[in-house]
Design a protein around this nucleic acid. Structure first.
Lengths: 203, 203
DNA sequence: GTCTATACGCAGATAGAC
DNA sequence: GTCTATCTGCGTATAGAC
């Protein structure tokens, strides 16, 4: 993207910012237009309706989320390595887009079918949980890690990584952390999570 | 509450249901009126505006959330006991009100100041984090548990318990769990979390 | 207290000039 | 392609009868 962004690109960028911050119900077309430096009519000229525009942003957001997981899942050879790659990769992504997690989770809560539509639209399976699952089961069988339900372990990992981003304002208030302190808290958290999970998996 | 509920009570109950499911921006006064079995005008007669009504529901929700934590915090004598009480208590509460966590977190994200207003309105400190903090530090010092930042441990606990409720539709899709299976998953999760945390804290 | 009818403003969407 | 002006419907809120 070396040239100046086209109007369409500016709209997409503006829409992403507004939708992610406010959600579908809270977002205003006027805000998107203002942020893109154009007027409302032009939004409709390019994307027809708020709903259409939202679909695009939602889909793009999911596509930021899932493929990275997919890659790590199919490429990993053991649980320990998977954790050590997953945690920092995921947390860094969320750090760059602080509203991403909240947005996706909320909109899926409001329209559960939307995720399904996207997933079945993909050729290759976007979320090959079995890859992770069999990895875990193999190591449980060999005694490399303690017995654990792969679904529970998966939820542990996701929860530990994502939760601080979802609950950031609440946490920073309860723990009394300003912006800088919270960033540092997140920095330290990467190693802490890895340590937390791996020690708990010891047989 | 042995008598029939008053109109005011019916409105509050209806408003709670709608606001928790849809959020402030997504909720409709018409939906609340329908659910309460009255008409829109009566809502305004009792509560003046949507915003006023929302404030009440938001405040009540926070009051469901925090005092329980507070009680466990000040009453606990050691970390292990705290965890074993906190996890099932909290998860059971969330189970009874599945939308509570999502609602609170979202609305705090949209209006961070709102939480602060409520907390300072209280006489006694609603969230005595120091109680938990010193508990942890004492046991770290005595070697009962491994060294850990109390704030990180706190976030671990919250995240592990709350996340499955926040991400329920996403998880049930990715892990392919229907409603019954998801409930069972949550049942098993209580013990799993306790085990997960306590083993990881061993020195 | 509870209703019907209605006012009012906001936000999404369209028409049409340039 | 981009703008100004306008239409339309929806959602909050009020007026007023009962």
């Amino acid at each position: 993207m070396l040239q100046d962004p086209t109007t369409e690109e500016r709209i997409i960028a503006a829409a992403k910012a507004v939708f992610l911050e406010k959600g579908m119900a809270g977002a205003r077309m006027q805000d998107i237009a203002d942020r893109a430096g154009i007027n409302k009519a032009l939004l409709h000229y390019y994307f027809r309706s708020k709903d259409k525009l939202f679909q695009i942003i939602f889909q793009e957001s999911i596509q930021t989320f899932l493929p990275k997981i997919r890659m790590l899942m199919v490429e990993s050879t053991d649980v320990d390595q998977f954790i050590r790659q997953f945690v920092p990769t995921y947390m860094n992504m969320l750090r760059m887009q602080p509203y991403l997690a909240t947005f996706i989770i909320n909109e899926i809560n409001q329209h559960p079918a939307a995720l399904w539509d996207i997933m079945k639209g993909n050729e290759e399976k976007p979320f090959p949980f079995e890859a992770f699952s069999s990895l875990v089961e193999r190591e449980v069988a060999s005694g490399a890690i303690r017995p654990i339900d792969p679904r529970q372990l998966w939820t542990h990992m996701m929860g530990l990584c994502i939760f601080p981003f979802l609950a950031r304002p609440m946490l920073s208030m309860l723990l009394q952390l300003d912006a800088i302190q919270f960033d540092q808290f997140l920095d330290e958290r990467r190693e802490e999570i890895i340590h937390f999970i791996t020690t708990s998996l010891q047989p």
